[in-house]
């Protein structure tokens, strides 16, 4: 589904990604871990098409398309979703209106009929129940006045409504207390299907207790220095990242 080859990217002249390789197939959950500043968020933003980041080398193929050639909205319509680390506020626009507009753009570009307000409302209510968010979310302005935890849950609601093929969760656990973390993780688990892949970007192993990954990758100084199964996350939790730093310095 997603194939990243030798991806290099920079922001304002600083190279952040220095040759990332990663292959993700449908139904898989990949965790990308790493210390602060290793390039985790940059990888998420580059995949989603944030023009602030410049790709200087490498290829990314997504569902058979050259992802890097597409503007952000085309990537989204193709089925790529990013749950933001810092969800953005859009005052005055309700979640419901926003999501209906987004879903209909995606449906349109996939040759599906647009949903009218009534049908959309039905769908939205189902999804709110699925990921256990209060129905009052629908009429609240997008992330405006939301607590940190509510914002993260709102991202998961959007994920549920837009039904992407690949969802990237960028530090969705940051700023969540343990209860909120559990609720968010349960929501994500309900959205796991054999068709849908996840890339879970996180600093801590904690989230991976709840969202159990198939693969764990360690991103360090802009490239993946180690990959393994879910047990790698535990090892990182126990040993920290320092041993990998030494290792990468030697190699």
């Amino acid at each position: 589904m997603l194939e990243i080859r030798n991806l290099h990217a920079e922001v304002e002249g600083n190279e952040i990604l220095k040759g990332v390789d990663l292959t993700v197939r449908a139904g898989e959950v990949h965790a990308v871990m790493g210390p602060n500043g290793s390039g985790k968020s940059t990888l998420s933003q580059v995949l989603a098409g944030n023009e602030q980041y410049e790709v200087t080398e490498g290829q990314v193929r997504f569902l058979g398309r050259d992802l890097l050639e597409l503007p952000a909205e085309e990537r989204a319509r193709l089925g790529l979703f990013l749950a933001f680390q810092y969800p953005v506020e859009i005052p005055g626009i309700t979640n419901s209106y926003f999501l209906q507009a987004a879903l209909n753009e995606i449906r349109k570009s996939n040759g599906l009929e647009e949903l009218d307000a009534v049908d959309f409302r039905k769908l939205l209510e189902e999804k709110m129940d699925l990921v256990a968010v209060d129905h009052s979310f629908a009429e609240r302005p997008v992330n405006d006045g939301f607590s940190g935890g509510e914002k993260k849950r709102n991202e998961i609601l959007q994920l549920a409504v837009l039904e992407p093929r690949l969802a990237i969760l960028d530090e969705t656990d940051s700023g969540l207390d343990i209860d909120a973390l559990r609720i968010v993780a349960e929501g994500v688990n309900r959205l796991r299907t054999s068709e849908r892949a996840f890339i879970v970007v996180t600093h801590y192993q904690r989230l991976l207790e709840y969202i159990v990954p198939d693969y764990v990758h360690v991103l360090y100084k802009g490239s993946i220095v180690k990959s393994g199964g879910k047990e790698l996350a535990r090892e990182l939790e126990a040993r920290g990242y320092d041993w990998l730093k030494e290792k990468s310095a030697v190699s």
């Binding site: 952000a72 990013l82 933001f84 810092y86 859009i90 995606i106 959007q158």
Partner: peptide, 14 residues
């Protein structure tokens, strides 16, 4: 903000 526009675009809105 760029962030607002990018957020919308990431959801499929032109």
């Amino acid at each position: 903000s760029e962030e607002q526009l990018f957020y919308c675009k990431q959801r499929g809105i032109g």
